[in-house]
Amino acid sequence: MAIYKVDLPAGVVAHSLVDATQHASAMAQAVAEALRAAIDSHGRATLVVSGGRSTAAFFEALSGQQLDWSRVLISLADERWVPVEHPESNEGLVRRHLLRGAAASARFLGLYRAAPALEEAAAQTDHALAELALPIDVLVLGMGDDGHCASLFPRSPNLADALHPECERRCLPMQAPSVPRQRLTMTYPLLASARLPLLAIQGEAKLNTLRAAVAGDDALGMPIRAFLRPPLEIYWCP
């Protein structure tokens, strides 16, 4: 099955790439173009990215793009509540694969806080995210096989609050079904503010998940449904 066979909502754009290398390159070019436009328009740009094993190639392709990285603020859609040195840290992934070369001059706003408890860490991160100028210029999301995005997991205790369009919190603690379970996530109002939201998926399994998400409307069951609307662009490869 190809992505053009998925009955996407009107206005949602799909890009089909031949392989993971082209997928990373095409996304890097699109993100860099949007960041350049934002810098030209208002002198700065904000990029919010997601973690995950498949993002390293995209980060490396993006780090090689020519733009004024000193005017870019990079943050994370979500984070595992682990120190930066931990192998599961999204911040660690970004620092290893994106914040290098010319891109090392970008500002980075991480989500992890070394607080005594997850709830306290989320409160501290919520306060720190006040410096994130809205709207976000570019948001890059991934999607799990269960339809989660960022750390908005089905059946997580705070999911309804995190997905509420008028949620007053910028960051909430979440519980993932896999280890490490304790997570931090940006909430829907921040994520949905993005001028250019992108969804990066690879493989037939993710395409099947996308098709299931499109077929329903319960965002609590599949949180990605909350984002399947224009101006979302989806980048997929087999």
Rank of each mutant, 00 (worst) to 15 (best):
M222K: 08
A128E: 13
S105W: 03
S151I: 08
R71W: 06
A160C: 04
S41R: 14
L99I: 10
R181K: 14
M143D: 04
A205T: 13
P83C: 12
G101S: 09
S63L: 08
L228T: 03
L109Y: 06
H42M: 10
V140E: 05
A176T: 11
Q175E: 15
A117M: 11
S178L: 15
V72Q: 07
G64P: 04
A45D: 01
R113Q: 15
A160D: 14
A212N: 11
G216R: 10
G221D: 07
R170C: 08
A192H: 06
G203F: 01
L132H: 02
A61K: 13
A133Y: 01
L93H: 10
S151K: 04
V13H: 09
R44L: 02
A2E: 08
C171F: 10
V13L: 06
A160W: 05
H15C: 05
V6A: 00
C149Y: 07
D218P: 04
V140Q: 02
C237K: 00
R80N: 10
R155G: 00
A133Q: 09
I234S: 06
L163Y: 06
L17F: 01
M27K: 00
A122S: 04
S75T: 15
N90P: 08
V49I: 05
K5M: 09
G142S: 00
I39M: 10
G221A: 13
H23R: 07
A226N: 09
G142T: 03
Q182P: 05
N90E: 04
P173Y: 03
A24Y: 00
P173S: 14
E60K: 11
D19Q: 03
A2S: 13
G101C: 04
F59V: 15
A103Y: 02
S50T: 11
S25Q: 03
P180C: 14
E60F: 05
P238M: 06
P173N: 06
D40F: 02
P231V: 01
G51W: 00
Q124P: 05
E131M: 06
G51M: 02
V18N: 05
V6H: 01
A102I: 07
L109C: 11
D217L: 07
F108N: 13
P165E: 07
V94D: 01
A160Q: 15
W69D: 04
A114K: 08
K206F: 06
L67K: 13
V140T: 00
D126R: 01
G221Q: 10
L99C: 09
V18L: 07
A205P: 04
D68K: 13
